[in-house]
Design a protein around this nucleic acid. Structure first.
Lengths: 349, 349
DNA sequence: TTCCGAACGGAGAGCGCTCTCGTGCGTGCT
DNA sequence: AGCACGCACGAGAGCGCTCTCCGTTCGGAA
């Protein structure tokens, strides 16, 4: 190939065009598969692409098309106060995060787009995010917020950045989201505990200022009321293992005769089980425990956890697809997709 | 502000220049902080930037500078055969992954760069990655490979893409990496078990075709030999909880009188502990168990796991910094940074 | 005052791509 | 045979930025 080109630079459309003996425009049309191109010419262009090892330059393309083919996966979490270690905290260590990533990657991959990961955990980052997103020229945002009272959703929609949330927004916002029917899940747990014969039932909830925490509690109490239990004691936890332990200690102090517990997520449920055992209670014989999520640990722990399965991967994949659809058609009206949880009965209840 | 500009488009350098009454070049100089600009002029430009809400367009900038300010976090894992679910598998569910991400984000953030997440788990993805990276115009690659015999490192360096690995490459390659001193960690475990009085010691290793698995086994046997134990029985596991259970079952069958076990990672250690308990063995009284990693679960499980701590977050952050340095100076010579593990004594041994 | 150099601003040429527009040709209709 | 239409392709104008090059200005030394 005697086409002169500085060897340090990758081949461009121009080079391919010269090799194929056509114009840039034609090569572009072949590359993007638009309009009718003479089959013969198309083939010669394809050969030229092959020969030169041409790969389109995204930056140049983005510059004119004004979109990048990447989306941001933004994780918004509260600032940690008084922490000494410099690393982002809770989210990434939550097994939940891995499942979300897994689903997002799964949903995005067929379309050849990759998520860029952004963490927002300081007021500064929060304030700068919008500008950052504009600058980074990201096509859309997948927002996973565990920040109570987050106004990022509103800001994003106001900035006209296509956005889809994981979980219903805390504050009202014109934005699409995926979620699980928390109340239905809680009902599943209530029904199971009652059917199992538990009569002194309590619950350890997640933080009540986030929908996932509150909805599960409300749904549980609601379902229990229908079963004739007018009030169900509750200790508020924080969705962590340790939080589950502490909540269980308190619950045991307040209600020592408890025989069935619905716990807001699996992490806390494991903590609760550990504490119960330390207090000599057998699970499920003395106390039945039901978790929420069906995290991978739920299967592995002892006893294996009966839990309300949340199809996190499917939800995250759907979130990704929804975002792609919104990017494709900016006028698409917003929607919510609610997934039904299922009860996975193992040994803890 | 009566500067005419299509309201649908974000402000450009040009607009800012007009508002400030200077040339594009001057605004560019202010934005990039290069050369000296008259303080008065600089200030007026800054006011104009403020007034217009200008944010530089990355695509345009990338087009000329030929770098993007983003790096890829590539996760390479073996293809899963005969799996039915469509989601990427093991890596994302491993708590390890979250720690790596956490460290990477922590190391990248001070420099304003974000990782784009890419999963490589099929031959097709493997083959297409290099082109994909060129196309995506990523400045560098952080590679976390759990693929035995991966030749991605070699391919990346041959493609002259700045790359840093998490863990020593399986095949020799001219590439920087961070790693932990697996052997030293294994020695820590050996010393502790022996000091504790264990005399019938065995080990459950990770996969022997990955360095992390093999090195820990070799290091352990080596240290044990120095303590006068000429041979240490080993069952090979696969770094998963379930794999730990299975390995423990086998170990118990082969060596029922075992009183001390070093397990290749925490996930397997937890599985092993569960199986031991099911067989009526008390941990640590009958059998002492030491894990590896110090994952968050090690602290939460019962009994809390004595384990060899690997400073994953620090390692990942260092990996990120190393990559940034390689990007900054492409001629920088490759290095390895090895972290020292520490023994975290809890209750299991 | 004259001259030189340093310092700073502006003009303008691209970076590699897309996309509109215009040209020329072949086809079907009257 | 004449005309209009459609289709394939090329020309060329940008997208928003950086960076080199050049002109201008100003200060200080002779």
């Amino acid at each position: 190939m005697s086409i002169s080109r500085p060897s340090s630079r990758p081949p461009t459309l121009e080079h391919v065009a010269r090799v194929a003996g056509v114009s840039r425009a034609t090569v572009s049309r072949v590359v993007n598969g638009v309009r009718n191109v003479d089959p013969e010419m198309r083939e010669s262009v394809e050969r030229a692409i092959e020969a030169t090892g041409y790969v389109p330059n995204r930056a140049a393309r983005s510059l004119v098309t004004r979109h990048t083919g990447t989306v941001a996966l933004v994780v918004s979490e509260p600032e940690r106060h008084g922490q000494t270690d410099p690393f982002p905290g809770t989210v990434f260590n939550d097994p939940f995060f891995g499942r979300v990533v897994s689903g997002v990657v799964g949903g995005l991959r067929p379309h050849g787009v990759h998520p860029v990961l952004m963490l927002v955990d300081t007021p500064a980052a929060r304030a700068g995010l919008i500008n950052h997103l504009r600058q980074d020229h990201v096509d859309g945002v997948l927002l996973h917020s565990i920040f109570p009272d987050d106004d990022l959703p509103k800001q994003l929609t106001e900035a006209a950045i296509p956005t889809v949330l994981f979980c219903r927004p805390t504050r009202p916002a014109q934005v699409s989201y995926v979620d699980v029917a928390h109340r239905d899940g809680a009902k599943l747990a209530a029904d199971h505990l009652v059917a199992r014969g538990c009569r002194r039932i309590a619950t350890i909830s997640g933080p009540l200022d986030v929908p996932a925490g509150n909805d599960r509690l409300v749904g549980f109490r609601d379902a229990m009321a229908r079963h004739g239990f007018p009030f169900v004691g509750c200790v508020e936890g924080n969705f962590t293992h340790q939080g589950g332990e502490r909540a269980m200690e308190r619950l045991l102090a307040e209600q020592p005769d408890v025989d069935g517990i619905f716990v807001g997520n699996d992490l806390m449920a494991q903590g609760a089980v550990a504490v119960l055992r330390e207090h000599g209670r057998r699970v499920p014989d003395d106390v039945a425990v039901i978790g929420f999520d069906d995290s991978s640990a739920a299967r592995g722990c002892r006893p294996p956890l009966t839990t309300v399965r949340q199809p996190v991967e499917d939800m995250a994949a759907e979130m990704a697809r929804l975002l792609l659809a919104h990017i494709e058609d900016p006028d698409r009206r917003i929607t919510s997709v609610i997934f039904e949880p299922t009860l996975v009965v193992r040994e803890s209840a």
